[in-house]
Nucleic acid binder design. Structure first.
Lengths: 113, 113
DNA sequence: GTGATGTGCAACCATGAGGTAGCACGTCAA
DNA sequence: TTGACGTGCTACCTCATGGTTGCACATCAC
């Protein structure tokens, strides 16, 4: 029962989140940040099998998608995880699944008549 | 409160679904299939701005991820959409968002003391 | 001030993924 | 049987993306 204009409006954000989540390194980065509460690019690079620069690039993607937010503290930038976009994407996805199920149920009913 | 072994077990499937959904052409293919109930690679190619071969490749990815299933009927292969994996991924994502929220709430509590 | 540490930026490399074209093979209809 | 149509496979091209290195700049501790 979600309205159609709202869906298309969210499409861009949802797309960014999904693309951001599609990369395994990015998922590990999110895991580490979530585990630590906050983390810097340097910290993350120390814990992952990639260079700091790679982490920085991934953080940029995650920041653009809204999955993460950085706050500057002196010379370092602390990144924290943001659940809202992730939650919105989960709801979008659940809605799509529900729509598919409804469509399939309708087709099955037609086929049985 | 989801158990850890279950999560890692689903990680591969969830990953495949997310990667499959990350491509915009693939999302359009899913939309068209869902709208028609069933569709062949040739039908889809006629409705989308890509060649049949491209559609075939995308369908292979979607099939591997479980988002779609094909059934052969004579010389043509009809693809239909499958909601279960999508639904499972939505739930996984919602669970992750909840975990993030819980973690953030815990950190905030600590910070306020 | 000076060294150490962390970030920011640019150039560069390599590989995988999306896309195309071409052809061989099965299947339906006349 | 023969032509039309749909699929399956292979080879090939291009470009975005994940990754690296190197260096300049800011900031903290001593």
């Amino acid at each position: 029962m979600t309205d159609r204009a709202d869906e298309s409006g969210r499409a861009a954000e949802v797309d960014e989140v999904i693309v951001a989540l599609a990369d395994p390194t990015r998922r590990r980065i999110l895991d580490v940040i979530a585990a630590h509460g906050e983390a810097t690019a340097t910290t993350l690079a120390a814990e992952l099998p990639v260079s700091r620069q790679a982490v920085v690039k991934h953080l940029a993607v995650l920041d653009r998608s809204g999955l993460v937010q950085g706050r500057r503290q002196g010379r370092e930038v602390l990144y924290a995880v943001r659940p809202d976009r992730l939650d919105a994407t989960a709801r979008w996805m659940a809605g799509l699944a529900a729509k598919w199920e409804a469509r399939l149920a309708g087709i099955k009913r037609l086929a049985e008549r």
